[in-house]
């Protein structure tokens, strides 16, 4: 992990952004509004500093969580204000919400679908890019204090490390005043593996170039 260089982080960002473009297209169609996802940050962070970067620990947020498994492991989760989550659910289920504070099973199902579409597209792009098998579990949605949810995720991923490689993706849905964050936490071994693959790919590409020239 210490060998992680700025250039390598930028490469990972590009690959994630490709997935974001695909996810944006799919979601824009379903939501009938312009949805924009873009990687805002790729950073190696101390585990104690992550939650405060995402907001106030006591703030109530809705978190849609999926685990990554296969060749690359980790966790990915979407953080939305509950009001935004319900607006999205209303849009996806086409059922208007009377009470903006209550989630029903249709909302949970819609938010799970949102997680599947968004994370699925990004993971698919990353999987193609790295030529590695990466799969997602079914989503789980929890609404509680930001600190309670995110710290629990950090504790899970950060069991054996001081720092976690974080990909932060901004979500903007035009005309709906909806903003959210999507995060990918790769397990330390998975991050090292991604870097190794990237480095190897680059070396091969360089050799090919010389061979052809």
């Amino acid at each position: 992990m210490s060998a992680l260089r700025l250039k390598q982080l930028e490469d990972m960002k590009k690959s994630m952004n490709h997935g974001c473009e695909n996810a944006s297209k799919s979601l824009s169609k379903i939501m009938e509004a312009e949805v924009k996802l873009s990687v805002s940050e790729v950073k190696l962070m101390k585990i104690e500093d992550i939650t405060k970067k995402l907001g106030k620990t006591e703030e109530i947020m809705t978190v849609v969580l999926l685990n990554l498994y296969g060749d690359i492991t980790g966790t990915t989760f979407l953080i939305l204000e509950p009001e935004s989550a319900l607006k999205i659910a209303a849009k996806l289920t086409k059922i208007p919400k009377k009470d903006i504070r209550v989630f029903d099973e249709f909302d949970i199902s819609a938010l799970s679908e949102l997680g599947n579409i968004t994370m699925g597209a990004i993971i698919s792009a990353l999987s193609d890019h790295l030529d590695k098998d990466i799969s997602l579990t079914i989503p789980e949605t929890v609404t509680d204090m930001l600190g309670s949810t995110v710290n629990s995720i950090i504790a899970h991923v950060g069991k054996s490390t001081d720092k976690i490689l974080i990909h932060k993706i901004n979500i903007n849905i035009a005309g709906n005043d909806i903003k959210g964050n999507l995060l990918f936490f790769f397990d330390p071994k998975a991050s090292e593996s991604i870097i190794k693959i990237k480095t190897k790919t680059k070396t091969n590409a360089g050799n090919d170039k010389r061979g052809n020239g």
Binding site: T51, E58, M145, A155
Partner: peptide
């Protein structure tokens, strides 16, 4: 999180966002 405080001054110590943490 990942922090502690000790006091002998009759203060009120607070923390929030406690999930799987203890």
């Amino acid at each position: 999180m990942a922090d502690l405080a000790v006091s002998a001054n009759q203060e009120i110590l607070k923390t929030s966002g406690v999930g799987s943490c203890l």
